[in-house]
Write a protein that binds this DNA or RNA. Structure first.
Lengths: 224, 224
DNA sequence: CACAACATCTTTACGCTGGAAAGATTCCAT
DNA sequence: ATGGAATCTTTCCAGCGTAAAGATGTTGTG
């Protein structure tokens, strides 16, 4: 089944598409045994090739991890698109759906997610990684801008973006690390991480219908 | 039974207080060269001892990293206490001060902060680490509970805690990783990460008594 | 003071890792 | 078909964590 596509950059020979096989094997290793277990040699063993074969395709370990992180970012981007398409055009719902997609991705692929933010083991200069990161970042920024509309100030616009990203990212990281176990245990019966996230959104009003009224109300409440 | 003198720790034998010397050297390595550079052998070289000496004090690498993370948590806890003591008894200000202390700690000790949340390289069963983590967590919970008062529901109470923690943690992680550089560059002249954090607090109304409008902010500040 | 038990550090050794270098195999263009 | 290039293997080296045994200074006990 070796069909040839003119612009196809992958020529199959011995193993046939070893590069993609390595990426797939790398992902299962990272999800099942964690990032430290993802070594060039372990990967080569899993793929049934010599330990030097991965280095040929990815240069070194940083190259492999960067390439794997890139597939993570593109997958996250498509997940963003799907989640937003599923809730219609309302900017509020779209932004909230994206936040849920962010956390959902982290829960579905914790190892990959952690790798995507392990800066010291990635090389952002790699074209694939940079492009994938830019795409994901652009999707996030667009959704935030669409919801914010015309902000009162540049500071507020930036703050809203930073707030939403910080919130969903922090929630994802803490949840994956099991740091929220205590809080989850304190939840009423039947509530899980997903409903907690919704409640977090409601409390922060970052991804909920907003207006200056609420802020004024809060300020007034503090006075009393 | 071992007496301990803070000013003159030269009480032990060969090297004298090698354990603390190792912890100090480990911190400088982690801050200057990152977590991957913190190896038992590099640490031994930095301390001028044989490469097996650290293993005797910490068991293995996980033990060393756990012990170092523990000093990070205790330092964070004292930073919490100092920051809250500096702003008086108002629960709002205290909570906000704690959030700022959280991010400030991450900025001051990025390597240590990252290590503290590198679950796969830590052993939470270590008494020192567990105790230090519990202390920091208790401080955080107390400050949140003091501000929340009597919440409308258990879900909301948990959500407020999760929201604040997620927000400051996510902000810290993204800031340290340089992921907020783009947003920081979009800030008005003279604004830095600190003012962005304040704006984030204002937007999320999790730890801020005021909205983004200066009038509202001033009004609320006068009330307090 | 003598001496044994102990804690601390060093030496040695083993298997694992990433990476470089060179050889072998297969594909592709000509 | 043939030369060149891409792909994979083999070999080798230094660094790593860790275990075990040896060396050295400290400390408790008579």
């Amino acid at each position: 089944m070796s069909h040839r596509r003119p612009p196809a950059p992958r020529r199959t020979y011995h193993h046939g598409d070893l590069r993609n096989a390595l990426l797939a094997a790398a992902e299962t290793i990272v999800e099942r045994e964690g990032i430290p277990a993802l070594t060039l040699r372990a990967l080569a063993r899993a793929a049934g090739v010599s330990h030097a074969a991965p280095a040929h395709h990815f240069g070194d370990l940083v190259g492999l991890l960067s390439e794997l992180a890139a597939v993570g970012y593109t997958r996250l981007t498509t997940r963003f698109a799907e989640a937003m398409a599923a809730v219609g055009p309302a900017p509020d719902r779209r932004l909230r759906a994206m936040g849920q997609a962010y956390v959902g991705f982290a829960r579905a692929h914790p190892g990959l997610f952690q790798l995507m933010f392990r800066a010291e083991r990635l090389d952002p200069a790699r074209p694939a990684l940079r492009a994938a990161m830019d795409a994901a970042g652009a999707a996030l920024r667009n959704a935030i801008a669409a919801r914010t509309g015309t902000p009162a100030s540049a500071l507020q616009a930036v703050a809203q973006a930073a707030a939403l990203w910080s919130l969903v990212h922090g929630f994802s990281v803490l949840l994956i690390d099991g740091r929220l176990r205590g809080l989850l245990a304190a939840l009423p019966e039947g509530e899980d991480a997903e409903t907690l996230l919704e409640a977090v959104f409601a409390v922060t009003d970052v991804a909920a219908p907003a207006g200056p009224d609420r802020e004024v109300f809060v300020a007034a409440a503090e006075c009393a």
